[in-house]
Amino acid sequence: MSSAAPTLPARLTVVVPCYNERANVAPLIARLEAALRGIAWEAVFVDDNSPDGTAAAVREIAAHDPRIRCLRRVGRRGLSSAVIEGALSSSAEFVAVIDGDMQHDETRLKPMLAKLAAGEGDIAIGSRYVEGGGAAGLAGGFRQRLSRLGIRFAQLFLPAPVSDPMSGFFMMRRQRFEEIAPRLAGSGFKILLDLLFNARPPLRVVEIPFEFRARAFGESKLDALVLTQFAGLLIDRVLHGAVPLRFIAFAGVGLVGVGANLASLAVGRALGLGFALAQAIATVIAMGVNFQLNNTLTYRDQRLRGRRLWRGLALFMLFCGIGAVADLGIARTLYEDHNSLTVAGAAGAIVAVVWNYAISATLVWRAR
Rank of each mutant, 00 (worst) to 15 (best):
L304S: 07
T296S: 13
A286D: 06
D301N: 08
R300A: 15
R311L: 13
V351E: 15
A314L: 06
T283I: 09
N295C: 10
V354N: 13
R303W: 03
A278F: 04
L297N: 07
Y299N: 04
Q292A: 14
N356R: 03
R303L: 03
A358L: 14
A278T: 03
A344Q: 01
N339G: 03
A276Q: 13
R300F: 12
I330S: 06
R300M: 14
G345D: 06
C320M: 06
R332G: 09
V351K: 07
C320D: 06
L297H: 07
A331N: 04
F316E: 03
L293Y: 05
A331D: 01
T333D: 09
N356I: 00
A326C: 15
D327N: 14
I281S: 04
G321S: 08
R300T: 11
T298W: 02
D301I: 02
L293G: 02
G312A: 07
L304K: 06
M317Q: 12
V284G: 04
L297K: 01
G345S: 12
A352M: 12
A326E: 12
R311Q: 13
N294R: 08
Y299I: 07
A324N: 05
L315F: 10
N290P: 04
A346K: 02
R300E: 15
A326Y: 13
L315M: 11
A286S: 15
